Each structure stands twice: as C-alpha cells, then as structure tokens.
Amino acid sequence: MKKIGGLGIGAILIGLFVVYGIYWYNSTVGMSEGLANTWANVESSYQRRNDLIPNIVATAQKYAEFEQETLTAVIEARSNATSINVDASDLTEENLAAFSKAQSSVSSGLGRLLATYENYPNLKANENFKELINELSRTENRINVERNRYNDAVGTYNVKVKRVPGVLFASILGFEPAAFYQADEGAEVAPDVKNLFGSN
C-alpha cells in the first residue's frame, strides 16, 4: 500500500474542510430561516393586537363622556407602532429596540385605557367590549409566547455562529449574530385584562 504524501494529506484535509463547510452552511441557513419565521410570528402577534385597537377605541367612543385624550394616545401609539417593521435579515439591537419602544407605547396606552374605563359600568357591561378585551388578553399571552420562542431561536442560532469553527465560516459567509428581543423597562407587565370582568 502506498503511503499518502504531504500533498495527499493536505488535499484530504481541504476536502474535509469543504465538506464540513457545506454542512455548516446548509444547517445554519435552516436555523436562519427558522429564526426569521419566529420573528414573523412575533410581528404577527403584535399586529393582531394593533388590529384589535380600532374596535376597542370605536366601542369606547360610543360613550361620549369617555376620556378622549386617553383614546387619542392609544390611536397615536398604534399608528407609530404599525409604521415600524424590522426585516428578518436585519435583526440588530437598534432595530429591535425601536420596535420594542413603539410596542411599549401601545401597551402603556392600553393600560391607561383599561384603568380609566373601570369608571364606566355601561361600557364595562357591553358584551362586544367584553369580547374585545378577552381577545386582547389572549393576544397579550400569545405575544409573550412568541417573544420567548424568538429569543430561544436567537440563542440557538447565535451559538452556531459564535462557536469555533462556526465563527470562521460565519465571518466568511456573512452570518451575523441576531439580537435578542428585550422589552423596555416596565413593558414586561402587559395591560391587566385578565380580571376585568370577574369570572367572564
């Protein structure tokens, strides 16, 4: 049996490096797509909340004495939040911070609205409003679940692109670490919509 010379060993090592690089690339693309999907679910959950707001506001506006300033603040916060979109290929800390800040303003506005409307028993008894608030509660829960799933996906992906030898392939092939979703201070407390109607 012939001995493998230095060039042969070098060729084998290069071949192994290329094969592993292809494997790493394909698996990382899969993770990247999974990350994009989890981010899309985060945005979709927030969009669902934003879609509920016009109906909540419209119902509250039927009660003439309801605080218009509170409703205006919610509408403006929603408008700002819906204007900010983060592309899944650009999940940087700056972009996610801007998105989070806008969504936190919506949460704050909804919190004030829910606290204020307690003073209006006729509104609180409105069946349509009850259902809207119940749907809002379910949506807030979904937002929390999807943010956690996104952060789990970020953790897995970032380990892949930061560990050796993956970090070498990541720098060559252009894979950047993704940012975690970090809500603004106080934003972890969603509007309290669970106990507004007792057992309903």
Rank of each mutant, 00 (worst) to 15 (best):
E76A: 12
G10H: 06
V57P: 04
S27F: 08
G174Q: 09
P54N: 05
A73T: 14
G6Q: 10
A77Q: 08
I143F: 03
D192F: 00
S104D: 11
I22H: 05
S79M: 07
I4P: 03
S107C: 08
T139K: 06
I172K: 15
G30M: 11
W39E: 07
R138M: 14
N50A: 14
A98N: 12
Y181R: 02
R149D: 13
F180W: 02
I56W: 01
A60S: 04
G109K: 14
S100C: 02
L168P: 03
Q61I: 05
A170D: 01
G10A: 13
W39T: 02
S199V: 09
Q182N: 08
I84A: 10
D152C: 01
L52D: 07
Y117W: 06
T92M: 12
A183C: 06
D192N: 13
N126L: 08
R163E: 15
K2W: 08
N126S: 09
N151E: 06
E146L: 01
E140L: 07
T156N: 14
E135N: 12
G166P: 06
A58Y: 09
W24Y: 10
A183M: 13
G6H: 10
Y181I: 03
Y25E: 00
A153Q: 09
N158W: 03
K162G: 12
V189G: 02
S32D: 12
Y23D: 13
S83H: 12
S171N: 11
A81S: 11
N37H: 14
G6S: 14
N200F: 14
V106Y: 09
L16I: 15
V74P: 01
R147N: 04
A11F: 13
N126G: 03
N122P: 03
I53W: 06
N50I: 07
Y181N: 03
D87H: 05
S104Y: 07
N41R: 08
L7P: 00
T38L: 02
N37F: 10
S107Y: 07
V86N: 09
Y25I: 10
V74H: 01
G166I: 06
N158G: 05
E76H: 01
V106P: 04
G30K: 11
T59D: 09
K2I: 09
L35Q: 10
S171T: 15
L132R: 07
S100H: 01
A81N: 11
A40C: 08
R112K: 15
E94G: 10
F129D: 00
V193I: 10
V167T: 14
A88G: 09
T116M: 15
G6D: 11
W39C: 01
S89Y: 06
G15N: 05
L35C: 06
D87R: 07
T156V: 15
V159F: 01
R147V: 12
A81R: 06
S79L: 07
G109P: 11
S44D: 04
V106R: 05
P165S: 10
S199D: 12
N128S: 12
A97K: 13
Y157K: 05
I133W: 09
E69Y: 06
Y25K: 09
N85H: 14
P121C: 08
G198R: 11
V74S: 04
F99H: 13
V164S: 09
